[in-house]
Design a binder for these strands. Structure first.
Length: 489
RNA sequence: GGCGGCGUAGCCAAGCGGCUAAGGCAGCGGUCUGCAAAACCGUUAUUCACCGGUUCAAAUCCGGUCGCCGCCUCCA
């Protein structure tokens, strides 16, 4: 069984056949470091984190490169506004990015190159393009001549004529063709500069990815990824630069994920409707965010709302509750008890891994994969619930191995990595800490209520129960007495 | 204007030619309980925006209509 991925370039699902058997070279466009990351960036990081985890789980040896763009117009502008240097600004937000990723438990990429560390390779590519007549100098700038690259527009599926018709192109008299784009920009006073054959300047926006991918992965590599908004012009231009310079194919597959929206509109700085990762993490744990992201296929728009985040909270609690119940099973089995799980149930659970793999192999369908996991949880809960106090060994073994399978599969999405009992305990402690009540006070009230119940004073008993419930303490009257827990969510 | 995507139950969301249209949330019913809560179980679309067409067979393919969104300018 092969992993099939949707390739933007062909617009269809294609079996993944790496250049080199068992090895995958992946390049993902990372952030431009001039501000805190919003949850759209989080989706990007999480999606590729999942893809890398899953491919490795499937036995591939993955080389994962994710760059930082640490010099460009926005960085220069922002640095000037903040009266700092571009280096300081970029460094600050790269640091913030790493903090965010650590909190999201997104593993670092194998290589995290920065544009400013690769200026020599950038210059080399531009020289090659100049030598081949694909680029030209105009004043202190160097532009790529799109007319000279016949397949320009192939990735985004548009022709130069179509784009000209768009007519939203800024006038630049230096350009031979309005669609030409800068490879090198001559520096203005006060801007950071590097020496080059075309005078002091800095790289254009797209060239750094061509240079860094080439240096770390070679002229041709397997997968190039990023957000859908990068298809044009960024990735289109990367192809033109890289293939123009090397004469060899660039990325073999293109993966683009959808946006995070709010009220069905794309999250963006200009609309002012964006939420930073750190803002969201103040309200929701990272794992909730992960479940939220993976509940939808990566190419589909993902609408952020309190309601959907709350659903993710409930879903995660359900998964951990199932695992915690299984973990709490007695260590020794009963010899006399008959197994509770039916053959049908056992069969269904046994098929979980296969069904999950099929879903994930099909263009990383995490939503379907999670559906299968929840489906298995339902079956496991049913079995758990019907278990006698001293369960049969067959049932215990089935439940334990199933829980292990679920943990492993969910792990490809970075989910269910916590110890289930600890997860629930920690969550309760956290909420308890936020409440102005302590365990002693609760115990006192429970004691009082028990006396009231013994006296059949139901009114008083209910009053105490409601009083505690108002403070998110739920009482559970069981055969061995009353226990309490913090109401989750 | 050009190009692309989407429209599946109250909500979120899989399914993309053929078994009963996954799963989650919410709702409802049940087990439990003094009554509850929690937990768990069960249940919730004869139908997939609308209209035609292709096919033995369509939510799934084709054409049209309506609605929403994105890219074409910096953007994950």
């Amino acid at each position: 069984m092969k992993v099939v991925i949707y390739d933007t370039k062909t617009g269809s699902k294609t079996p993944l056949e790496p250049m080199e058997e068992g090895r995958i070279k992946l390049y993902v466009c990372g952030i431009t470091a001039y501000d805190y990351c919003h949850i759209g960036h989080a989706r990007s990081a999480l999606v590729f984190d999942m893809i890398v985890r899953y491919l490795r789980y499937r036995g591939y040896q993955v080389t994962y490169v994710r760059n930082f763009t640490d010099i460009d117009d926005k960085i220069i502008k922002r640095a000037q506004e903040q009266e700092t240097t571009t280096e300081e600004l970029a460094e600050r937000f790269i640091h913030a990015f790493h903090e965010d990723m650590a909190r999201l438990k997104v593993a670092p990429a194998d290589h995290e190159p920065r544009a400013t560390e690769h200026i020599p390779s950038i210059i080399r590519i531009i020289e090659e393009l100049m030598a081949k007549g694909l680029a030209y100098q105009a004043d202190n700038d160097v532009y790529f001549a799109v007319d000279k690259f016949p397949s320009y527009g192939a990735l985004s599926g548009r022709s130069l004529d179509d784009m000209m018709a768009g007519a939203r192109i800024s006038v630049n008299e230096n350009k031979h063709n309005p669609m030409d784009f800068a490879l090198w920009k001559g520096s203005k006073p006060g801007e950071p500069t590097w020496e080059s054959p075309w005078g002091p300047g800095r790289p254009g926006w797209h060239i750094e990815c061509s240079a860094m991918s080439r240096e770390l992965l070679g002229n041709t590599f397997d997968i190039h990824g990023g957000g859908k908004d990068l298809i044009f012009p960024h990735h289109e231009n990367e192809i033109a630069q890289s293939e123009g310079a090397s004469g060899e194919p660039f990325a073999r597959y293109w993966i683009h994920h959808g946006f995070v929206t709010i009220k069905d509109e794309k999250m963006s700085k200009s609309l002012g409707n964006f939420l930073t990762i750190r803002e969201v993490l103040e309200h929701y744990p990272a794992e909730v965010l992960r479940l939220f992201v993976f509940s939808t296929h990566y190419r589909t728009p993902l609408d952020y709302s309190e309601a959907t985040l709350q659903e993710a909270v409930a879903g995660l609690d359900r998964l951990y509750a199932c695992l915690a119940a299984i973990a709490a099973l007695p260590a020794t089995a009963s010899d006399s008890a008959a197994p509770v799980a039916s053959a049908k149930e056992a069969k269904k659970i046994a098929s979980l891994a296969d069904r999950f793999h099929t879903a994930m192999d099909n263009d990383f369908n995490t939503a379907q994969g999670l559906g299968h996991i929840f489906d298995a949880v339902k079956t496991l809960n049913r079995i758990s619930q019907n278990l006698p106090a001293a369960p049969a060994g067959a049932d215990i073994a089935l439940l334990r191995s199933s829980a292990a399978t679920i943990t492993t599969l969910a792990g490809t999405m970075g989910l269910l990595g916590e110890d289930p009992a600890c997860y629930i305990e920690a969550k309760q402690q956290k909420i308890l800490a936020e409440l102005d009540i302590d365990a002693t006070a609760i115990a006192g009230l429970i004691e009082e209520r028990s006396r009231a119940r013994d006296a059949r004073d139901w009114a008083r008993a209910d009053e105490i129960r409601n009083q505690l419930l108002a403070r998110r303490i739920e009482l559970k009257d069981g055969p061995t007495g009353t226990t309490w827990q913090v109401k989750l969510t």
